[in-house]
Design a protein around this nucleic acid. Structure first.
Lengths: 190, 190, 190, 190
DNA sequence: GATGAATGAGCCTTCATTCAT
DNA sequence: CATGAATGAAGGCTCATTCAT
């Protein structure tokens, strides 16, 4: 279990994500993952103690990456709407580009692998996002609702739109992105 | 002679939904389902040829019920916003009351059990909902965007809010419901 | 287990024989037998305590019937070759007409159902046949070999010929029967 | 790396043959086979996709081996009776030495595993044997009957004699072998 | 470290048998 | 008696995990 080769871990992760997207968590086996990643079953056990560890670590990696990407180019000192727009667009872009991670996280949520603790840790990573929402409320730019509700309203709508586009292989143009943003913004603005 | 007790099907369904909510599709077995439902493993096979059939049939039942409930009390001749409000509230209420079905459907989407065909059939059941959206567009009450996008925007946000509430055991008061409705409405209105 | 209706037993037997011929002992179930016979699974258990009893009783019935038929029209006082011919023809005819019994007995021989005891009882039913062979030996008409060997030589060749004809749906004409008889007779005659 | 040990296949075959001889096809399970062969159940599935494949492949192996052995030491250019004697003795010896294969083939014939196709392939392997019989007919040494009938007459009688000896643990002496050969020969000779 | 054959617990499914109707 | 739904032990097969090479 001494990961000499970080590259292999990445390949295992990638293989897992693709398989879960295609078959769901219920449909994958360790040997499928190994095969897809291009090496023997036993090799996976050099990097992960067992299946659960693999799933949990991947889950954590996904949710960390996801959260980090949210804040790419985010400047807390910029005006609220600009900041909000930045993060919203990150969210959309990341969800599209990392659709398999989206699916994986969703499937994990109701699996025996993920504990409440892990689930909660996920939330904490989005603290800056929550703080931004609170700032918006303070600046009276958005509705005076619980920040969680605003966040979920935004993320939920983005998520379903991305799923729809991916399943139906639709291209999301910039014009469309702005229309969607507008829906979200109109929904929450005061 | 003991006639086939169709009520057992409902019990099997109920047991399955609870278990999938708690453990995910990946975590359930036929014997768990039988045990939860209160009878022997073999009994499940009197009503369903195999695990896949059970999952698929339950999926179809859920998506049918879900769609039907959308339109409870829906009067197509009422003013657009009233009609929209009715359906929106149904959606919210059903998602809350049948949270396990929500989870089940979500888990099935990326499982080896559900085919594209089954997935598509689901959509068709929501035709009146789509027609209403189109009417709203025609009446210039809502944004001139693809109806699918509007529908997904609405459903996605509702879904994530319901999930959040359920996981955190929050009570959803009527005031809150109306606030949420307002977010959705503001998001889509022209 | 009080067989009020002997007819049902016959139907169960008939169904079993057909199924074993088609699928082998390894391929049949109690419900298949019941279905083929035309009634419910449970009904079979009114007439037979369990599967083993059904198989064993049918086996005994078959071997009894088989043995009895051997001696139809057999007159111990007739000349040896005439008597031998009579029994030989009976053997051939019965094997053809009751091919499924032939197969059933063969399949049972190496099954967990039939005990050595049952197997031995089968032999004893052919005592008159053995006695006739001994008489032939005494009359110096046939070879001075162990009677068992003569009997097996005769029965074995008949059996394989019948199997071949049945599998290939060949008709066995009287001329052919006589040719076959001649082979057997030439083989054993002194 | 531990390479696939093809020797295991032979062990699986041997275990299967012994078990089928003792219990019949109806009485064996995959775990019994694995246990008898000396390894875990799952191991059998490394070498055979499922039970059917194991049975079918073993059947084909047995019938090939059986056919090949028929012709050990067979010289087509030797006089007819010599050639016939060689093959006949091979048949007898092989049936005695490989009694479990004999039983296995017999049990398979009426099983759900063996198809007509497989059954027919078996026959083709005995072509040289058939040709020899035809030659005997042409040389007017044996009766002018269908070659199949001659072949079955010979094999059938040998088979039942071998079965009898094996069940009753009789030793077959060379004198006896020759007596039996004589019965067969007298039966078919012109 | 890497491999993949070997292991055996556990899952899906069948089926002999029981039992309520 | 007859029925066939219900039962649960047992069989076929899978797959997470181990281990010899």
């Amino acid at each position: 279990m001494k990961p000499k080769d970080e590259g292999k871990i990445a390949e295992i992760y990638a293989a897992t994500l693709v398989l879960v997207k295609e078959q769901g968590l219920a449909g994958i086996t360790m040997s499928m993952i190994a095969k897809k990643a291009g090496f023997a079953t036993g090799t996976v056990y050099i990097y992960f103690a067992n299946k659960e560890e693999l799933i949990v670590k991947l889950f954590e990696k996904c949710s960390t990456d996801y959260a980090n990407d949210y804040f790419a180019g985010y400047d807390p000192s910029s005006p609220f709407k600009v900041a909000f727009h930045t993060i919203w667009m990150n969210m959309l872009r990341y969800s599209i580009e990392h659709f398999d991670e989206l699916v994986f996280i969703e499937q994990c949520f109701h699996s025996p692998f993920i504990t409440d603790e892990t689930r909660k840790a996920t939330k904490e990573r989005l603290l800056p996002w929550r703080e931004l929402i609170e700032r918006g409320k303070k600046e009276k730019l958005i509705k005076q609702l619980d920040a969680s509700w605003i966040m979920l309203f935004v993320r939920g709508s983005v998520r379903d739109l991305v799923k729809h586009c991916t399943y139906n292989q639709l291209k999301i143009t910039d014009t469309f992105k702005e229309s969607l943003f507008e829906m979200c913004w109109d929904g929450i603005k005061d």
